[in-house]
Amino acid sequence: MLEMSGRTHRDGDLAIEAVDLRRRFGETLAADGISLKVPRGSVFGLLGPNGAGKTTTVRMLTTLLRPDSGTARVAGYDIVRDAVEVRRRIGLVGQYAAVDEILSGYQNLFLIGRLYGMNGSQAKKRANELLERFDLLEPGKKAVKTYSGGMRRRLDLAASLVVSPPILFLDEPTTGLDPNGRAATWDIISTMTKGGTTVMLTTQYLEEADQFAEQIAVIDHGKVVAEGTPAQLKARLGKSTLVVHLDDNMTEAKARSAVDRYAAAPPALRQNELVVQLNDLGQTAEIITALAQAGANLDQIHIAKASMDDVFFELTGKNRAQEGLAA
């Protein structure tokens, strides 16, 4: 992940470039001027609460929805004028499994292969390959409506990979999955991204964006409210904190005098802890040294890094508990 984020990109290397996309549904501006640049081969996260405009953005980029205004190029092709060219180069995993419930898993994959222009035997071979890879060989003969959520999602992913598209859109790919299903899905996706596929994923799960995306755009009310690497966003928006447990040996006065010059704001006393907001994580070592010299035991010192939750809250004023209520 680190080595990839260090890459530089020319504009010609962009897999997705959106400029000022807008789309209105009645009174609601679902997308209110979305601009994005996604380098080829990268994993791009679109993070935002429910109703922020994530799905609308993905639907426009995948040619399912026409923007009211603005333009976008996907794999170098205009999403409106060259929609068919775009469709030849993308895979879409939507919020709801886009598979035929009545057909079997095998029949679904065969169908997609045939529609991509494979002949019968090519489509059959590919379908069986994918069933094997996604651990669906056994249930492959049964109707999809008998599948569990995780199996359905795996089949959905497999269906998106019938032709190994260079650009893959994943719209909340783990929504509705149990932790096991989520982990398995991410296993599959991360292996794919290692193969060079460009991935745009939308998610409400902050840790998912944090863990997998090299670049994140946070969107809210149809607008991009922040953009950057997870580390940049966290550095810019969420301050890390250092907590010192106080006791008779390490008094408040001693602790304050040791950390004062590193603190971003005056340290706050919270029960028997001193909470210090840090300007710069790089100074951590110095602070710890200073505290140790003042007589602190290392067990007493705890550093809390900013989480994506903090970033999310800062940007959208919503936390996940509220999200849950809204949903």
Binding site: R88, R89, R133, S164, M192, G195, G196, T197
Partner: peptide
């Protein structure tokens, strides 16, 4: 699942 590959090992197929 380790055998899942998208493009490595196979050519990227453009229909």
């Amino acid at each position: 699942m380790s055998s899942v590959t998208a493009t490595s090992g196979e050519s990227t197929f453009i229909p």
